[in-house]
Nucleic acid binder design. Structure first.
Lengths: 287, 287
DNA sequence: TGATCTTACGTTTAGCGTAACAATA
DNA sequence: TATTGTTACGCTAAACGTAAGATCA
C-alpha cells in the first residue's frame, strides 16, 4: 500500500518546498509526486496538505507526518546497515595483537588462507585481548602468556628479541659489550615509533630516566634515524635498511622482558591458529 | 523497491515457521512469499535464509533482519496513529468542568453549534483546568472563579444552588426551617453520587462529622434514595422525579460555598463561549 | 512568460494467483 | 501421501512518463 519511496517523496517535498523541485531532486516526474501525495493522504485518511490552484503546502498534520516519516526512514536505514554489518561481521576475522610485528606475518597468512574473509587487525592490551577472545568478538588473539584456562586454544607463534641500535661513538659502547640490559641505557633519550603495543609501556617502565621522542610518521622516523645520534630499538622481526642504519651498531638487550614469545589464542577454532603457524615464509623472514 | 508488506511477510514467516503457514495467515499464495523473501534478500544484498530442497529457515543475519523489521513496522504503526491522533485532535473540542451539571448543558449546545467536531468532556480541579486552558490543551474550561489574568476570555454561565433533601420526619426539619446551613446537617450520614467534581470535596470539608455513602451507579443510587431515609443533595440543575423523591422535603442550604456561579473560560476564542452562553434552552430548564 | 500543480492517456512493468514440479517426512 | 518450497505462465492492475490544461506571479 505505502512504501519507503513514498515517504522519501514526502520528506523531499518538505525539504524542497515545491513538488517540482522535489521531483527534480529525486529524478522523477512531477505527476508522480502529485499522485504519491494523494496516495499518502488517502492511506492516512487524513488531510495533510492545503491546496491552492497551483500551490500545495503541508498543513499542521502534514508536518507531523513528515516528522514521523523521517523517523520511519531513519529506522529503515538503520535496519539496512545493521543487517549488512552483521552479515559482514560473519565474514570478518578479527585479529588483536599486543604488538605490531606478529600482525605483519599473521595477517598476510590469514588473507592467503581465507581469501573470502575480511580481516580486521588492531593492537590492544593483553587483558583486553583475552576478554575479547573469551566473548568471541576477537577470533585470533596474539598475547605474551599462554592462558591457563581450558576452552581456549593456544599455539606458540614467534619470538621477538629486542636490540638497541647506537651510533659507534655512543658512551654505552665504550667497552664494546656483546649485550646490554635496560639499566645500561636507562637515562639516554631514545627515538621511538608509535603504535608499538606492549613495547611502549615496557620501555617506559624499564627506562624511567629516559625520554622518548615518539614519531607517528614512518618517513619522519627514518629521517630522524639517519640524521640523529639518538638510540633506536630494533628486533629480529623489525629491522632497518643499511642506509637507515647509517653505521649504527646494534646490541641485544638481554633482559627477559625484552625477549618475548607470542602465543596465538582462539576460543572457537584451533584450525585458524594452525593456519597461521603453518606459514612457510616465517623461517625465511625471521632467521 | 521494498515495502511494509514485505516486512510483514518476513515477520509472519518468522512467527509461523513456514512460508505456507505465513501465506495462509496473510491470505496470500505461497509463491508470493517465496518471491518476497527473494526480493528482500536481493534488496539487502545479503543471505538471510538457509535453503534446503523443500525447507527454508532464517539464518543469523535473517534473525537480525526480523528484529529490525519489527522495529520498522512498530515505527510505522506509531506514525500512522500519531498522524491520525493529531488530525483528530484538530477536530476535537476539549471541555473540562469542575462539576458535572454545567456539562449537561454546555456539551449538547457545543454539539449543536459544532456538529463536525468531536467533543471530549471531563471533570477536573479548578487549578488543573486553568492550567490546561492556558497551555491550550483544554478549549473550554468551566470553573468557579473568573480568572484575573488577561488573555483568557471569560463569561459567567450558570448558577447552581445546593439543597438538602430529607424525609419529612427527619430531626433537622423539627422547626420546619426555610433554610439550613452545613452545620445543621453536619453529622448526618448522607447518600452521595460519585463524579461530583468540587461538590464532593466541599461536602466533606463542610460536614466533617458525616459519613458519605458513595454510589457509582445511577440506578442503585435511585434505588437507595427511594428505599432509605438517608439525606441526599439536589440542586436547581440536578433534580429528581417525584417518584424518586418519595415524599422527601428539600431545604436550601444557605452557605455561600453551596451557592456557586460557574464561569466559562477559554484562551483562544471568545466565540465558543458565546456559543455556549447563547443556549436558549437553559432558561426553560433552569427556572 | 515561466513556474507550479493537476488531469488525461497510453505504455510498461511488476505483482499476483493458478498450476505444475521436486523433494521430504 | 500430505506438506513444503520453487519455477513457469498468463493476466491484471498499478505506476510511470509524456502531454495537455489551468492558474498564478
Amino acid at each position: 500500500m505505502i512504501s519507503f519511496e513514498d515517504f522519501e517523496q514526502l520528506t523531499a517535498f518538505a525539504k524542497h518546498g515545491t513538488l517540482a523541485k522535489a521531483a527534480n531532486a529525486l529524478h522523477i516526474s512531477q505527476p508522480t509526486i502529485t499522485r504519491t501525495m494523494k496516495n499518502i493522504e488517502e492511506c492516512f485518511g487524513v488531510k495533510l496538505f492545503e491546496r491552492g490552484k497551483n500551490r500545495i503546502r503541508l498543513n499542521g498534520t502534514g508536518q507531523i507526518a513528515v516528522e514521523q516519516a523521517e523517523k520511519v526512514l531513519d529506522a529503515t536505514r538503520q535496519m539496512m546497515t545493521a543487517v549488512r554489518e552483521y552479515d559482514k561481521s560473519l565474514r570478518t576475522i578479527v585479529v588483536e595483537s599486543c604488538a605490531p610485528a606478529p600482525l605483519w606475518f599473521a595477517v598476510p597468512q590469514l588473507a592467503k588462507k581465507y581469501p573470502a574473509m575480511t580481516l580486521s587487525s588492531s593492537l590492544a592490551g593483553n587483558d583486553e585481548i583475552m576478554e575479547h577472545v573469551r566473548e568471541g568478538s576477537c577470533h585470533v588473539g596474539i598475547v605474551l602468556t599462554p592462558p591457563a584456562e581450558q576452552g581456549i586454544h593456544c599455539r606458540p607463534y614467534l619470538r621477538e628479541n629486542l636490540s638497541i641500535c647506537l651510533p659507534p661513538n655512543h658512551p654505552a659502547l665504550q667497552n664494546a659489550p656483546a649485550s646490554l640490559d635496560f639499566r645500561d641505557i636507562n637515562g639516554f633519550n631514545c627515538l621511538l615509533r608509535s603504535q608499538l603495543g606492549f613495547w611502549d609501556g615496557l620501555c617506559r617502565r624499564e627506562m624511567p630516566a629516559s625520554r622518548f621522542l615518539v614519531q607517528e610518521d614512518d618517513d619522519e622516523f627514518q629521517e630522524l634515524m639517519r640524521n640523529s645520534t639518538l638510540p633506536v630499538f630494533i628486533t629480529n622481526l623489525a629491522k632497518y635498511s643499511e642506509e637507515d642504519m647509517n653505521g649504527r651498531v646494534s646490541v641485544p638487550i638481554i633482559d627477559a622482558s625484552a625477549n618475548v614469545t607470542y602465543y596465538l589464542v582462539s576460543s572457537k577454532d584451533a584450525g585458524i591458529l594452525d593456519a597461521i603457524v603453518s606459514d612457510k615464509n616465517i623461517l625465511a623472514i625471521v632467521l
